[in-house]
Amino acid sequence: MLVKQSLSISDIRVPAKRGKTLDAARRDLLAEDLIEHGQTTPIQVRSEGSGYILIEGLHRLEALRLLGEIRIDAYLVRARQH
Score class of each variant (00 low, 15 high):
62 E>S: 07
69 E>T: 01
24 A>G: 00
37 H>Q: 11
80 R>A: 10
44 Q>F: 06
68 G>I: 04
39 Q>P: 04
13 R>M: 11
50 S>Y: 00
74 A>H: 03
78 R>C: 00
63 A>H: 03
64 L>E: 10
35 I>Q: 14
33 D>T: 14
19 G>M: 04
55 I>F: 00
4 K>H: 08
8 S>P: 07
39 Q>L: 12
26 R>T: 09
17 K>P: 00
68 G>W: 02
15 P>A: 04
77 V>Y: 00
41 T>P: 00
19 G>L: 07
37 H>T: 12
80 R>C: 01
13 R>L: 13
43 I>M: 05
23 D>R: 08
43 I>D: 02
9 I>A: 10
33 D>Q: 14
56 E>G: 05
23 D>V: 08
38 G>Y: 06
77 V>P: 00
44 Q>W: 02
46 R>H: 06
30 L>M: 15
45 V>L: 02
72 I>F: 02
72 I>T: 02
13 R>E: 15
73 D>C: 01
5 Q>A: 13
42 P>E: 09
71 R>H: 14
64 L>V: 06
64 L>D: 05
7 L>C: 07
80 R>D: 11
77 V>G: 00
21 T>G: 00
73 D>L: 05
10 S>F: 09
52 Y>A: 04
13 R>Y: 07
42 P>M: 06
73 D>N: 12
59 H>N: 13
17 K>I: 11
32 E>R: 14
53 I>D: 09
61 L>A: 04
33 D>G: 10
11 D>P: 01
35 I>M: 13
20 K>E: 14
33 D>M: 09
57 G>C: 06
25 A>H: 06
55 I>E: 12
44 Q>C: 10
65 R>K: 15
53 I>P: 01
77 V>M: 07
69 E>Y: 07
58 L>N: 04
69 E>R: 13
81 Q>P: 00
2 L>M: 13
58 L>T: 06
40 T>F: 05
30 L>W: 03
56 E>S: 12
24 A>I: 11
26 R>I: 08
8 S>L: 15
64 L>Q: 12
74 A>W: 02
39 Q>N: 11
51 G>I: 09
48 E>A: 14
22 L>D: 02
33 D>Y: 08
13 R>A: 15
5 Q>D: 12
49 G>M: 02
28 D>E: 13
35 I>D: 11
67 L>Q: 09
45 V>E: 01
23 D>E: 08
81 Q>F: 01
82 H>F: 00
79 A>Q: 11
36 E>I: 13
78 R>D: 14
17 K>W: 09
3 V>C: 07
78 R>G: 00
43 I>Q: 02
68 G>M: 03
16 A>V: 10
26 R>M: 05
10 S>L: 12
54 L>Q: 05
51 G>K: 08
19 G>Q: 08
6 S>G: 03
47 S>A: 13
30 L>Y: 10
2 L>N: 14
70 I>D: 13
57 G>A: 08
70 I>R: 15
71 R>W: 03
